[in-house]
C-alpha cells in the first residue's frame, strides 16, 4: 500500500545532518546527503534512476520503478503522487509537484523517467 507522506517534508522542518548541522528541509543540497553518507558507518548513498512511472491501485498513488546502484537492481515502490524524492543536482521532485507544494509548501520539480534520485542502502549489504 502507498506510503503516507511523513511530517518532515513540510517546509520549515528542521533536519540534522550527520555532522550535527541543522538545515531546513527546503534548503538541503545534494552535497548534504553525500557528505552525511560519507560520515555514516552504516548507510551508503546510491544513485537510483527512474525507469518507469505507472499509476497505482489508489488513484492518488504511483508505482515508480528504479534502477538502483551499480548493479542496476530493479526496485519498485508505490507512493502517493505528492511524495518527494531528491534528484541529484536538482533537488526535491515529485510526480505531482503542484500537490506537494499545496500540501507541504515544499517547492518541487516534476519527477520524470531518467531522473537520478538519492537513495540509501546498508554498507553491510555490499
Amino acid at each position: 500500500s502507498p506510503v503516507a507522506l511523513p511530517p518532515f517534508f513540510m517546509r520549515g522542518s528542521i533536519i540534522q545532518l550527520a555532522d550535527g548541522e541543522l538545515k531546513r528541509v527546503e534548503d538541503l543540497k545534494t552535497e548534504d546527503f553525500i557528505q552525511s553518507a560519507e560520515i555514516s558507518s552504516e548507510l551508503k548513498i546510491d544513485s537510483s534512476t527512474v525507469e518507469r512511472i505507472d499509476s497505482g491501485q489508489n488513484p492518488n498513488a504511483v508505482v515508480i520503478q528504479f534502477s538502483v546502484g551499480e548493479l542496476k537492481a530493479q526496485v519498485c515502490v508505490e507512493v502517493l503522487v505528492e511524495y518527494p524524492f531528491f534528484v541529484f543536482g536538482q533537488g526535491w521532485s515529485s510526480c505531482c509537484p503542484d500537490r506537494t507544494t499545496q500540501l507541504f509548501e515544499l517547492s518541487c520539480a516534476k519527477l520524470c523517467v531518467g531522473d537520478v534520485c538519492v537513495s540509501l542502502t546498508l554498507r553491510s549489504l555490499r
Partner: peptide, 19 residues
C-alpha cells in the same frame, strides 16, 4: 521543535536477492 535525521528523508531502496 522536532528535529529529524537526514536519512529519514531518503528512501531506502534495497535490492532484493530474488529476480
Amino acid at each position: 521543535v522536532p528535529v529529524f535525521p537526514w536519512h529519514s528523508l531518503v528512501p531506502f531502496l534495497a535490492p532484493t536477492q530474488s529476480d
